[in-house]
C-alpha cells in the first residue's frame, strides 16, 4: 500500500476520517485497546498513569514524552526504567514519530527595543542559554535550534526518540499541518477507547464535528 499524505486533502475537505484508509486506521487502532486498560482508567489522571509505569503496575501509556518532567518530579529514581516507541504503523518503512513542536519566542513588531530583544533571543538560542534551560527542566526531545546540543545524560526515554530525528522518520502533529480540528475529539476518542462507540462510527461522527468547526471559522471549501 502506498503512503498516504492526508493533511492537505483534509484541509481542502477532500479527505475524511471515515473513508481515508490511514485516518480510519487511527480510530481502529484506538478501538484495539479496549479491554487492555486498568479497571479505573476513566478516573485515572496523568499522574496516576505515570505512577503506574514507575511502580511497574502499568506496561504502556500512550502519551507525550513531555511527561518526563512528571516522572522526574514524582519518581526520580525510575528515570532510566522507562522507554519510548511510536505506535507501530501498518507501513513498516514509515514507522515514524508524531511530534509536537517546541515553544517559540517572538519579538513584538512595534517594540522600542529591537536590538535588546534580538540580543536576548540570541542568548536563549545559544548553547549557553540552552544549557541554562536544560539545567532547569529535562529536555523532552532534541532542540529545534541548529547545533544546540543535548546534555550527555538525557533520560532513556529521550534517547529512544533520537534515531527517528536522525533518520527523519517523523511528522509534526496534524495540528501543525492543518487548521482543521473538531472540538469534540477528546470526548469521541474516550468513547472509542472505552468501547462505547465503534471506531467506524466515531470517525464519521468526528467528520461532522470537523465540518462544523470549518464552517464556524469560515474556511474555504466547506
Amino acid at each position: 500500500m502506498g503512503r498516504p499524505r492526508p493533511a492537505d486533502d483534509y484541509t481542502a475537505n477532500k479527505a475524511k476520517y471515515a473513508t481515508h484508509p490511514a485516518a480510519l486506521r487511527s480510530f481502529q487502532k484506538l478501538g484495539d485497546i479496549v479491554g487492555y486498560m486498568n479497571e479505573d482508567f476513566l478516573a485515572s489522571t496523568v499522574d496516576v498513569g505515570i505512577a503506574m509505569l514507575a511502580e511497574g503496575r502499568g506496561a504502556q501509556f500512550p502519551i507525550f514524552t513531555s511527561q518526563i518532567n512528571t516522572l522526574k518530579q514524582n519518581h526520580p529514581d525510575k528515570m532510566d526504567d522507562i522507554g519510548f516507541f511510536p505506535t507501530p504503523s501498518d507501513w513498516p518503512d514509515v514507522n515514524g514519530l508524531t511530534i509536537w513542536m517546541p515553544w517559540t519566542a517572538y519579538i513584538y513588531k512595534n517594540t522600542k527595543n529591537v536590538e535588546a530583544a534580538k540580543t536576548f533571543l540570541d542568548f536563549i538560542t545559544s548553547q549557553e542559554g540552552v544549557n541554562i534551560l536544560q539545567s532547569a527542566t529535562t529536555p523532552t526531545g532534541p532542540h529545534l535550534i541548529r547545533d544546540a546540543e543535548l546534555p550527555q545524560d538525557v533520560p532513556a526515554l529521550v534517547k529512544d526518540l533520537l534515531p527517528y530525528f536522525e533518520s527523519e522518520q517523523l511528522s509534526p502533529a496534524l495540528e501543525y499541518l492543518s487548521p482543521i480540528k473538531g472540538p469534540n475529539l477528546i470526548n469521541i476518542v474516550v468513547e472509542v477507547g472505552a468501547g462505547f462507540r465503534s471506531p467506524e462510527e466515531a470517525a464519521a461522527l468526528y467528520d461532522s464535528d470537523v465540518e462544523k468547526q470549518a464552517q464556524q471559522f469560515g474556511l474555504e471549501g466547506w
Partner: peptide, 19 residues
C-alpha cells in the same frame, strides 16, 4: 463525559464557546 453521557445543554454550549 465519559464520552457525551452527562452532557447537558449548558455544557454543550460551553464546549462550543471554548472552541
Amino acid at each position: 463525559g465519559p464520552g457525551f453521557s452527562t452532557d447537558t445543554i449548558a455544557s454543550i454550549i460551553f464546549k462550543q464557546y471554548q472552541a
